[in-house]
């Protein structure tokens, strides 16, 4: 797993640098974080907690998008693990 994380992050550096140079502050990480905050269920939860989402810093948006992607990736791997477990039951 360590290798896959290093590989994915390493290869993404150049595309991110290209995107940062083209879009500056409004880069993919910020836009992705903004998308996340505008996602209806997330919006509803934040509204119920009285959290304002209008003026969020670029760093916070970038971190939230990376965390969300890590969570989605983790859940994806768990689904694959579940598939492997089920396969093991049938093979045994």
């Amino acid at each position: 797993m360590a290798f896959i994380v290093l590989f994915a992050l390493g290869i993404l550096v150049v595309p991110l640098a290209l995107d940062f140079s083209k879009h500056g502050k409004n880069n993919i990480l910020r836009r992705s974080g903004r998308d996340l905050l505008e996602y209806q269920p997330v919006r509803r939860v934040l509204a119920s907690l009285h959290v304002a989402t209008e003026r969020v810093s670029t760093v916070a948006l970038s971190v939230s998008s990376l965390v969300a992607i890590a969570v989605v990736g983790y859940l994806g791997l768990k689904v694959i693990e579940l598939f492997v477990e089920v396969a093991s039951i049938f093979v045994k």
Partner: peptide
């Protein structure tokens, strides 16, 4: 949410290639 999905897409591809 196309920007979030774009980033997710690139990471799915890189994890598989990794």
């Amino acid at each position: 949410g196309k920007d979030f999905l774009s980033l997710l897409n690139s990471l799915v591809g890189l994890v598989l290639l990794g």
